[in-house]
Amino acid sequence: MTVSTSTQPTPYLDALQRDGFVVVRSLLSPSEISSLKEVATKATTLTRSGGWPHFRTVPKQFPPWPKTPPPASEGGIWGVQHLLHPDMPGRQEFAKFYFSEKVLRVVEELVGVSPTVEEDNREEPLVMELFNLLVAPETKDFELRWHRDDISAEVAPDEELAQLHAKSPNGKQSHAQYNLALCPDTSLIVIPGSHRRARTETERNAAPYEPSLPDQLVVELQPGDAVFYDSNILHRGVYKAKPEGGEETRLTLHGSVGLNGTAGDGGKKKVRATAVLQHGVGAWVDRDDAGFGLGKRAEDMRKNLMAMGKGDDVGYSLQG
């Protein structure tokens, strides 16, 4: 749901709680889109050629992913991982966006944190989590099955509802997750309101890649638009293949920012450990060269992630 901010004190949160997602139009300026598109294209080219070892591969949907990318003839990659890694070319440009006030102000509203100002002695309420890039597969289309990010499709209705309530107490999550489009993007399909209820019998019995479920909605993004969504809304992705030899047709920044375990809603320090650390971010976030030079807030958010641990034994949220 696209919202107007003129009359409501918390328009983004209101839409998220009601619909399970909210579209923020023109979050980026044209110059910001151009700069990020340039570094995102370079990161994708590097990864497709085998020069970056962290990626999502066709046809696998969830981690762990293989160590080597499949050939283009089999679809290749559909994502580039760890844009904030110290060795990632263009890292500083990605970090400027990830830690920008325009992003963090939306996040603060969605996780229930009052806007803050820089203070030397304040405790940072947010946690640096994940920042990745979703791209078009090569030579063949690729689809994600219907899923919730952190709730198994095998659970019974009562347990499904209990987990939804536990993960979003009072309709609020312990993190904010978003897709920011640098190219026109119609890849995300959601079922509005499904983040607050168990699946219907139709949804529960549907084929994993069912192309048409009641009330489903295709989220349409133009360059610079972002969709923030409840990670446990019922959703899937449909990714059209990149034309052979053509320009990149999908460059979508996929990020999440967490609520520190000691701040807000009585959250627990490791409530997000599995969902975040399963991607391997704990392996490099504490490196001596992993700072960003973007001020106290970025550094405190990084330290809050470091406090979550390495993630060697957290396991994986979903399989497949």
Rank of each mutant, 00 (worst) to 15 (best):
Q216V: 06
I233W: 03
K242M: 04
P64W: 02
F62M: 13
A207M: 12
Q216W: 04
I151L: 08
T10F: 13
V113Y: 03
Q177W: 04
S35E: 13
T186A: 13
T274C: 14
G291M: 12
D289Y: 01
P9V: 08
H279L: 11
A206W: 04
A15K: 03
S317V: 15
S100I: 03
K60S: 14
E123P: 00
P71S: 07
G264I: 01
G295E: 10
M308F: 01
G79L: 00
A166E: 11
Q92M: 08
L134D: 09
G193M: 04
G51R: 13
L259P: 09
P66G: 09
Y209W: 13
D149P: 02
L213A: 12
P157Q: 06
V111E: 05
E108P: 08
A40T: 05
R297W: 13
Y209M: 12
G50F: 02
S73F: 05
E101R: 14
R25N: 09
C183A: 11
E93W: 00
D87Y: 03
V117S: 13
F292C: 11
G245S: 09
P243C: 01
W65N: 09
V285H: 10
A206S: 12
L318A: 07
G246H: 02
Q222G: 09
G90D: 05
V23M: 04
P184W: 03
D215G: 07
L234K: 07
S26E: 15
G261S: 11
A156K: 09
Y316I: 07
Q163K: 12
S317N: 11
L13A: 13
S34D: 15
T68Q: 15
R250V: 06
Q92R: 10
H82A: 02
V127C: 12
E124K: 11
V103P: 02
R250H: 09
Y239E: 00
A298S: 11
R122P: 01
G266I: 00
G171K: 03
L126A: 02
K102L: 03
Q173M: 15
L28Y: 09
A166V: 00
A72Y: 05
T252V: 15
T41M: 05
T41R: 14
G246C: 05
P86Y: 05
S212I: 03
R105K: 13
H254M: 09
D313T: 14
G261N: 06
H279D: 10
P184H: 05
R302P: 06
A95E: 08
R18L: 08
A72G: 14
L104Q: 14
N205T: 14
L318F: 06
V314P: 12
E201A: 14
L84Y: 04
Q216D: 14
S4E: 10
A226Y: 00
P53D: 04
P66W: 01
A15P: 05
T116Y: 10
I77N: 09
V271N: 12
T202Q: 15
H235M: 01
A43M: 10
V218H: 03
E160L: 00
F21I: 05
V106S: 08
V257Y: 01
